[in-house]
Design a binder for these strands. Structure first.
Lengths: 347, 347
DNA sequence: TTGTAAGCGTTATCAC
DNA sequence: GTGATAACGCTTACAA
């Protein structure tokens, strides 16, 4: 009964172009023009309108209605494959977010965060269920399969995929990461640190932290090639190990690698395992042994593992550029220098 | 001339409720109901509609149009005072973002990031200028003055302010941080570490990293009170220092504090300065001297300074709850234990 | 259970 | 330089 008691606080009429027009006795078009197309208007009348708008507390054209009418939103969406809560744990995702945020601030009206995982397909939305997929003017999808990116934007040309396999649809832009180049750089770095006997651990089926089902072996190969080219003659031995080695395997490997000054793994999980076991065995890292991995998983940062990371900081800017121009490009991975590498010494 | 060459790729008619209705020879209402109000429909017909929608590649109701019509958006906006590029550097902002993201994923359709700084007032938007303020269903504003939060949401009841002074408008929800409680905890912690002679540095006008113009002294007082209660008899001396002390001042202070085992500052800037100079003087931290600050500025993390941080991880959940229920609550600050504190020893 | 009609707030088109 | 009209895609009383 008394639910409208406080209505006086809220203006009964929401201020809109129509109300301003009515107030001034002119047409809605003219008011709209005053905001969106100043050149269509005598500047005198424009001032008058702007003035009246301010007086009426009009906050400006509603972005929602604008988007609906114009068919484009001023938001750019950043889409992750996993739940946001999970994705934002990754240093890669954090850096990507920061760079997208920074770069988008110039030309976009807002940054929309969403995850493909949390967005059930729109059609399943019930009456009380939360709304489904967001709509944006542009979409940047990180580690999301091409198929899952539909529906967020109106045109495929407004999509750019980061990482993963190249999109089938040629209209979709693509930023690729070249981890092999990073591996090459990391290999060279080890050589420059004086390492002359580096052992490499290869994981036959290796999909690491990149949730891509397909080019796992291929990617592993590329990384291996990158490392071996970077290391040159310093690469003295190669092991094959499963991605989640047992303690025993690690101990054996470390024994075999006794006269190696560094161990390079093609993934972080293995590198972290060796790192942990080596410490347990009393091997000082990096004084006696340097260890590097690939992927920059969250644990790598915590453990201080030197590793190769997807170049997310540059990816943000690049993606935004590609959103405008379209096209594809490949970015070299970056080396994350941390505490598990140092000058070569013998054990 | 040939700009429409590839039109065959894009369906000439965008799929919409109307097109589905036309296809099936029924009314738009029924189609809409099939998606938004399943109970208004025979499940048989509903299936038929959903089926046809899928066949036509209909991605579901356009959130934009839905929002416009229903007058509420399914996005929740997280608003920062500074540019996103700047804000996201802060550990506090990162933690807040993560917690809001996690908590919002359950009930909201997307998370909109924006900064009050980057949003010029709507009315200034030119014809080609990017759209102005985003519109959301709910707004969480962190370190943003109450006045700058208008226009993002349609109703004041859909706003919650985090930090800063209490909002004037009683409809706006508020999450307050109690740094004094954190100071108390940190003081106790020092005592528990065995410190019996703790010196305190007070900064008369102290607004630290909280861009609030007003209760600077008051806040400083509260923090001091918190510390002194937590420290009890261990608090043996208090200095007054400006927020950005000179090197000379630091050296003098460290000399005077020679028989203190710990120094507590009411802000990070001072603590960091003392921390740096102490190291230069060869004082081992934390072995010989523990130093703590307040605020958890980015540099504090890098320097490994133990400090008090705004409890952003819990703030996200709390804010989201308050968005629904309204109201106000106060959260105790958290102690960020880092490397600048350790057991008490004498110098 | 289904259809009709009237919007939500804005802007593009085309007359005047 | 200005104004009427018709959308944009959807929802929701209310009537059938």
């Amino acid at each position: 009964m008394f639910e409208h008691m406080f209505d006086y606080v809220i203006p009964m009429t929401v201020t809109t172009v129509a109300s301003i027009a009515a107030r001034l006795g002119i047409s809605r078009t003219t008011v709209s023009n005053a905001f969106s197309r100043p050149d269509q208007l005598s500047s005198h009348l424009r001032q008058e309108i702007l003035c009246a708008a301010q007086a009426l507390g009009y906050p400006g054209p509603d972005p929602l209605a604008q988007s609906l009418r114009r068919g484009n939103s001023s938001y750019v969406a950043l889409l992750f494959g996993e739940e946001l809560a999970t994705s934002l744990l990754t240093s890669a995702a954090q850096r990507l977010l920061a760079s997208v945020a920074a770069a988008s601030e110039q030309h976009w009206g807002g940054l929309l965060l969403a995850s493909a995982a949390a967005c059930r397909p729109r059609r399943a939305a019930g009456p009380t269920g939360r709304a489904s997929q967001p709509t944006a003017g542009g979409l940047i999808a990180y580690s999301v399969p091409e198929q899952a990116t539909g529906g967020f934007v109106r045109s495929p040309g407004k999509r750019v995929l980061i990482g993963g396999p190249p999109p089938t649809n040629p209209e979709i832009a693509w930023v690729q990461f070249d981890l092999a180049l990073g591996a090459h750089a990391l290999g060279r770095h080890l050589v420059e640190l004086g390492h002359r006997s580096v052992h490499m651990v290869r994981t036959p089926v290796f999909s690491a932290s990149f949730g891509w089902p397909e080019p796992a072996e291929a990617m592993g190969e590329h990384i291996f090639d990158g490392f071996s080219q970077g290391l040159g003659a310093a690469l003295s031995h190669t092991y094959d190990l499963c991605a989640v080695p047992t303690r025993k395997q690690c101990v054996e490997l470390l024994g075999t690698a006794e006269n190696a000054t560094a161990i390079a793994c093609d993934n972080d999980a293995t590198a972290l395992a060796l790192h942990a076991i080596a410490k347990q065995l009393g091997i000082k890292i990096p004084e006696q042994l340097s260890i590097v991995g690939v992927g920059d998983v969250p644990a790598a940062r915590l453990a201080g593992l030197t590793t190769i990371s997807e170049p997310c900081a540059s990816a943000g800017h690049t993606a935004l550029a590609l959103l405008a121009e379209g096209g594809r490009c490949v970015l070299p991975a970056e080396v994350m220098m941390r505490d598990s590498t140092g000058p070569a010494h013998s054990r």
